[in-house]
Amino acid sequence: MQVLQVQLEIRPDPAEVGRARRWTRSRLTGSGIEADEPLAETLILLVSELVTNAVVHTGCPAVLRLSLPRGAESDTVRLEVADSSARPPAPRHADGDETNGRGLELVDGLADRWGWNPEGAGKRIWCEVDRCNSGAATGAAYPAYEDFAYEAV
């Protein structure tokens, strides 16, 4: 199995989140994951959440890494964001109308696995999505709703 590993340096600036999403989308297309696949949208959202956390909560530069399998549908896509802050991620539960505090809950709900490890003086937060579990193999992101038409707004 071949794996394409790519990385992007992220400045501690909220505008970098959009740049990370665009960069990721272009790398996914080059790896055989089409832009309209549910897997692509899931990965873009995961990148957005992890990069946002790094930029907003650490104020440090970060590095986004993608490990993209080439070939078999059952391979795993891995995302990592490494930063120089030793402060561990702190999952929160946002109540009601709060506008922050849902990022790691989203990661936990969307990724097949996630965690973090110390890395040098900082840390690396990672998540993995199995292509066979993402709905991409069947074309259905939400199998229970296959017979319904829906629109994301």
Rank of each mutant, 00 (worst) to 15 (best):
Q2A: 14
Q2L: 12
Q2M: 12
V3I: 14
V3D: 06
L4S: 14
L4D: 12
V6H: 09
V6R: 12
L8F: 15
L8G: 11
E9C: 11
E9F: 11
I10H: 04
R11G: 13
R11D: 15
D13E: 13
G18T: 05
R19D: 03
A20F: 04
R21M: 13
R21G: 04
R21P: 02
R21E: 12
R22E: 13
S26G: 06
S26H: 13
S26T: 13
R27G: 09
R27N: 15
L28W: 11
S31L: 14
G32E: 10
I33N: 06
I33L: 13
E34H: 13
A35L: 13
A35T: 14
A35Q: 13
A35F: 12
D36T: 11
P38F: 10
L39P: 08
L39W: 12
A40P: 11
E41N: 14
E41P: 03
L43Q: 03
I44N: 05
I44H: 06
L46K: 05
E49V: 05
E49C: 03
L50G: 02
L50E: 01
T52E: 12
T52I: 00
N53K: 00
A54I: 03
V55G: 02
V56N: 07
H57L: 12
H57G: 05
T58D: 08
T58G: 06
G59Q: 05
G59Y: 09
C60D: 10
C60I: 00
C60H: 12
P61L: 00
A62L: 03
L64K: 06
L68P: 05
P69H: 08
P69N: 07
P69Y: 05
P69C: 08
G71D: 02
G71P: 02
A72F: 04
E73H: 02
S74I: 00
S74G: 06
S74A: 11
D75H: 03
D75Q: 07
T76R: 10
V77N: 04
R78W: 10
E80K: 06
V81D: 02
V81I: 07
A82R: 09
A82D: 03
D83T: 01
D83Y: 03
D83V: 01
D83Q: 00
S85Q: 09
P91F: 10
H93I: 01
H93K: 00
D95L: 06
D95S: 04
G96T: 01
G96R: 08
G96Q: 04
D97K: 00
D97G: 00
T99D: 04
N100I: 13
G101M: 05
R102M: 11
G103C: 04
L104P: 00
L106F: 11
V107F: 10
D108A: 15
G109H: 15
L110K: 10
L110V: 12
A111P: 07
D112Q: 06
G115I: 07
N117I: 10
E119M: 09
